[in-house]
Amino acid sequence: MLSLWKVSKTSGVFEHTKNSLLEFFSVCKSFGGVKAVDGCTFSVGNNTITSLIGPNGAGKTTIFNIISGLTKPDYGKIKLLDSEITGLPAYKIAQAGISRTFQLTKVFRNMTIRDNLLIAKKASDGEMKSALARVHLHKPLDMAAGELSYGQQRLLEIARAVLREHKLLALDEPTAGVNPQIRQELKAILRGLKEKGNTVLLIEHDMEFVMNISDEVIVLNEGRVLKRGKPQDIVKDKEVLEAYLGK
């Protein structure tokens, strides 16, 4: 596979091939003087699994919130395919084709599993059941989502995000609070999604998981892109190790 990226570290300008789905260009965001994202530039290749990693406070979740329109960037541009989505309200970005999950799961607790999925897409029961089966969640559609365990709620959230028509699937720590067996299954699910032409952007702390399934890894530190590359190169990188171990 050819490398999609050539980042010029000094200027933040990057050239990308026609293959990128999401472009994130010189994005900055501060909260009360603290720079959460400080001139981030990267892009996500079409039909890849890309992981964002980095120590706590590196700005990963802020980047997700900016991508999905929950946080407005102070500066910078975000493009999805050829259209700019910077500063659009969350629902319009969602309609443009970004589907995401949250670090702390957000299911509609008082609603049934069916209604949870219905908000994402007007699907038939059969379609819903197969969406649930894909994440190995075998529960009746009429069950209230609030009655599911934490890990099961996370699976429901993933199923809901996958069910929606989308171009990019952004998952914020999908393995957190999920048992090891399902963790292995998640790998298979993500690979399956990629085979079907999906593009996945991940935030993940489980390094074994990241290194195993990512095509590309982007390492963030203090709101900047520290390194990007293939997983096998990233694990050997000195700077990356320092960023993690230096803390």
């Binding site: 999905s68 329109g69 929950l70 309200p89 969350a90 629902y91 969602a94 309609q95 589907s99 995401r100 949250f102 957000k106 299911v107 509609f108 607790r109 008082n110 609603m111 908000i119 994402a120 809901r160 929606r164």
Partner: peptide
């Protein structure tokens, strides 16, 4: 139940 999640679903 969750306004943010509803917006995120379009």
């Amino acid at each position: 139940d969750d306004e943010t999640a509803t917006a995120i679903l379009g």
